[in-house]
């Protein structure tokens, strides 16, 4: 059984079919690339997988559970984590607090416990703190633990987003353009991070990315979307040399030259 099976999923916004009858299968332990020109429906597809949006039709199965109608937090509970395209962070919190909030699923003992336990106690839980620091070390933010997250530069915020997503110890990590706006050094380090979590933790990764070189380096398999539909699927190299893909990109995006 595959880890994630999306079959015939559609999402309509008014008259626009942002995602149209897409089949997507992700196997355990893979890194899969999801590419396509702007507005192709990549982010929308991720939204459908993590529950931010509900499908208009179609079915999504994750680890044998039909999650089509699940709300986002139930999907997170099953092991889906998400990094949004915009830097989504808990704005009023420090770097460490962000990761702590991301660790919610590991600290959750039901609402009654949340009402009776003090925040300080959770904050000072040594096991939890160790894990958070480990994650911050992984993404290279150990020296900024107590800074407010909004004061970080864009690249570091992006890394923090990844740390927050990883804090729940997900089986499937959905990354939406993790490399946009990063310089060469940050790009290299982010690629290293993604590879490392895939190798050491066995986390499956579904990554949307415009940077073709990065996709070639990261993924064993890629899926191309265009106008909400799946265009091609295969090895990244096959995908980017496919005439249909080149045509889809021509005039819209120069990255593929």
């Amino acid at each position: 059984m595959s880890l994630l099976e999306a079959s015939q999923v559609c999402k309509n916004f008014g008259g626009l079919a942002a995602v149209n009858k897409v089949d997507l299968v992700v196997e355990e332990g893979e890194i899969v690339g999801l590419i396509g020109p702007n507005g192709a429906g990549k982010s929308t597809l991720l939204n459908l997988i993590d529950g931010t949006l509900r499908v208009s039709s179609g079915r999504i199965v994750f680890r044998g559970h039909d999650i089509t109608r699940y709300s986002p937090h139930r999907r997170a509970r099953l092991g889906i984590a998400r990094v949004f395209q915009k830097n989504a962070l808990f704005r009023s919190m420090t770097v460490l607090e962000n990761v702590l909030a991301g660790s919610y699923l590991r600290t959750d003992h039901g609402p009654l416990a949340a009402l009776t336990r003090t925040l300080d106690k959770v904050r000072k839980d040594p096991g939890l703190l160790d894990r958070c620091h480990e994650l911050l070390e992984l993404v290279g933010l150990t020296d900024r633990t107590h800074e407010l997250c909004v004061n970080l530069p864009h690249g570091s915020q992006r890394e923090l987003c990844v740390a927050v997503a990883l804090a729940s110890n997900p089986t499937l990590l959905l990354l939406d353009e993790p490399l946009t706006g990063m310089n060469a050094e940050e790009t290299a380090s982010m690629i290293r991070i993604i590879k490392e979590i895939n190798r050491t933790r066995g986390t499956t990764v579904l990554v949307v990315e415009h940077n073709v070189r990065a996709v070639l380096g990261l993924c064993a398999r890629a899926v191309v979307l265009n106008y909400g539909q799946k265009l091609v699927e295969g090895s990244p190299r096959e995908c980017v040399t496919d005439p249909a893909v080149i045509e889809a990109y021509l005039g819209t995006d120069a990255d593929v030259a």
Partner: peptide, 18 residues
């Protein structure tokens, strides 16, 4: 802390399992 997370970004809060 959960309330604050929701206040800061309710989509992200849902995505981390809240």
């Amino acid at each position: 802390f959960q309330w604050r997370a929701i206040r800061d970004d309710n989509l992200l809060a849902g995505a981390v399992g809240i």
